[in-house]
Amino acid sequence: MDEEAAKKLIVETLQKKKGKSKFYLKDFYKMLPDEKPRTVKNLVNKMVGEETLEYWSSGSTTLIGLKGVGKQAGAEDEED
């Protein structure tokens, strides 16, 4: 799959998700089952650099979601 198509697929898949807004890196592997994990990792990190996606980190684990979806930095100190 070419890179643009893969990016589009990732965004569309994330937009369809209900409830959760942040995902493990392995969840992205499942979206592109024919690609190697390292390729998907590089693509996801590139999409973060392009500000399509964003990281969330607990300190020990990193999750990734669509930028702007879910709780944002300015509101992370607020209650749900």
């Binding site: 964003e54 980190s57 607990s58 300190g59 990193t62 930095a73």
Partner: peptide, 13 residues
């Protein structure tokens, strides 16, 4: 609270 989305540009850690 635990964790957040804050970081510096280009870094995920």
């Amino acid at each position: 609270k635990h964790g957040g989305i804050v970081g510096v540009f280009g870094y995920g850690g």
